[in-house]
Design a protein around this nucleic acid. Sequence first.
DNA 1: TGTTGACCCTGTACCGACTACAGGGTGCAG
DNA 2: CTGCACCCTGTAGTCGGTACAGGGTCAACA
Lengths: 134, 134
Amino acid sequence: MEKAYHSIGELAEATDTKVETVRYYERIGILPAPKRTSGNYRAYSAGHLARLSFIRRARDLGFTLDQVRALLALADQKKQDCGTVDALAREHLADIDRKISDLKALRRELSGLIGQCKQGTIADCRILSALSPR
Amino acid sequence: MEKAYHSIGELAEATDTKVETVRYYERIGILPAPKRTSGNYRAYSAGHLARLSFIRRARDLGFTLDQVRALLALADQKKQDCGTVDALAREHLADIDRKISDLKALRRELSGLIGQCKQGTIADCRILSALSPR
DNA sequence: TGTTGACCCTGTACCGACTACAGGGTGCAG
DNA sequence: CTGCACCCTGTAGTCGGTACAGGGTCAACA
């Protein structure tokens, strides 16, 4: 049988989170405060583990904590249609696409600059002049 | 003839920066404090404009303020070989490549989830279950 | 039984790179 | 001379944590 409760350290390790971060999530109200042991240690249930896993995974996917809050709120009130969730994800995908194309533009620009300074002095460094006011 | 001095608002507009950000740059010592008018307004020279343009452009390209500081220090002490600058840029390019591939992986994952929830209820939403503990 | 040492507690301050006021002063046009 | 846009300083807030300081708890081992 599974252990009924987990310490904060176990929870943190299981979800690849720092202990301080778990406490931070509790403080900002995204992870409910668990029961305490007689020694005042936090005692987390499987539900806490599930919720923290959800939060971490969504964070890994780049959702902000506010978006995670929204997703959790939706998940909590079941029986609604999940178009809202889909819309949230689509919006997020559009953000990601924007970032990717920005980074690609940046990459092109920067890689064009590299390797042009092999023996020059700062005075005629192409990277610095590319960054200088046009 | 060009105007000799610029107000903080003009400088900000010319470099697409917020006025508060310009003051912030001065406070952290990356943009030198300009002369003041009799009314205690900041009066920026063309040199300030050039330096701020440099900072903003480097920031747009994703350099941190610390990296910008390093670039400015190099640019200031001319006549050195610019291999250092080149190395800094190469390092940065590697960062960009990492970011791009991370985002692409994320994109794949997220776009696989989207569009699977057309008529379901939250109870069987694939996005939510993909986020739930495995 | 006593003492290590790993873990836990609270509270607060800090990070980067800004952003947003509050509460006041300046400068110019009508 | 009044109104308004702009400027000043100083401080606090944003996001998502991270890093202590200064203590308490617990289990194992001598």
